[in-house]
């Protein structure tokens, strides 16, 4: 009995929700804009945007949508430009260091606008980022190498103050990714430190790039800072043997063998040709005399 009832309920629910889906499909939906702000180590500011919408109880990414990005404060509004989302519904805008943006007292405000169309509603999203800075200092004492990072912001008087209790990631930059070497939290002065692993390979001078990040903070966005130092292990790479089976030039024994064989045979060919010429000359002489 109970089983039957449960079954009925399930049936009704399924049918209903299915119906619901069909009914909803034609109405325009409101997409969601997720925007994040990051300050990269070279001073570039990056606004990354993801555009998605709910459809059939699933979140789907919206590709090829045009988004407008605006930087603003109370006084001015600057249109930074349009970006188009990729196949994953993502887009990003990089603002090169040195670009002047409208700012308020402690940071920037960005606005992302989506114009809408027949299937999607118009929508916008704004983010505010308080400007924060990262300072890295590198110390080496008795073979122990320490990275110290300090997260700071400017207070109202323009003085530097540490930001306490935020997570900080320590990374080493690699070709395809950042390799995390540790996570720490800032202390009351806004600083934290980590020991650099002794076995991290660097380039042939031992140079590594240390990238310290304060990830995805609601107030500050992402802040990243990097520094080069020759703390890595030296890269010694072998110079390839120049003559081998797989190289452009053949191994010497091969060249010699081939040369010996070829000269051997072709000398005989030449010899035969000389013979024929000699026969010819002899014949000619005989005819003359």
């Amino acid at each position: 009995m109970i089983l039957k009832k449960i079954f009925q309920i399930i049936l009704v629910l399924t049918v209903f929700s299915g119906f619901n889906r069909i009914a909803r499909a034609d109405e325009p939906v409101t997409p969601r804009i997720t925007a994040t702000y990051a300050k990269l180590s070279d001073g570039t500011k990056r606004i990354s945007i993801a555009l998605s919408a709910r459809q059939n109880d699933k979140r789907v990414n919206i590709p090829d949508a045009a988004l407008q990005i605006i930087a603003q404060n109370e006084a001015i509004k600057t249109i930074l430009g349009n970006v188009i989302t990729n196949q994953q519904g993502k887009a990003s805008l990089d603002i090169e260091p040195g670009t002047t943006l409208p700012r308020d007292q402690d940071g920037y405000t960005f606005m992302v606008l989506f114009g809408g169309n027949t299937k999607l509603d118009k929508t916008s999203q704004s983010i505010h980022a308080t400007e924060a800075f990262l300072e890295i200092s590198l110390n080496e004492k008795d073979t122990i190498k320490t990275i110290t990072a300090r997260v700071i912001k400017h207070n109202e008087k323009g003085e530097k103050v540490g930001i306490p209790d935020v997570p900080v990631e320590f990374n080493v930059k690699r070709l395809f990714c950042l390799y995390p070497i540790g996570n720490e939290k800032t202390d009351s002065l806004g600083s934290c430190s980590l020991e650099f692993p002794s076995t991290m390979p660097g380039d042939k001078n031992g140079k590594v790039t240390i990238v310290v990040r304060m990830p995805d903070n609601e107030t500050y966005g992402t802040v990243e800072e990097s520094k080069d130092i020759n703390w890595g292990t030296l890269l010694v790479y072998k110079v390839k043997p120049i003559r081998g089976l797989g190289d452009t030039d053949a191994p010497l024994w091969m060249v010699y063998t081939l040369l010996v064989l070829l000269t051997g045979v072709w000398l005989h060919v030449v010899y035969i040709i000389v013979l024929v010429i000699r026969i010819n000359i002899i014949g000619k002489k005989a005819i003359k005399s």
């Binding site: 059939n56 789907v60 999607l120």
Partner: peptide, 13 residues
């Protein structure tokens, strides 16, 4: 995240 979108109204090409 993978996959194209069902909302292909915008996806022209």
């Amino acid at each position: 995240i993978g996959g194209g979108s069902v909302l292909s109204a915008i996806s022209k090409v």
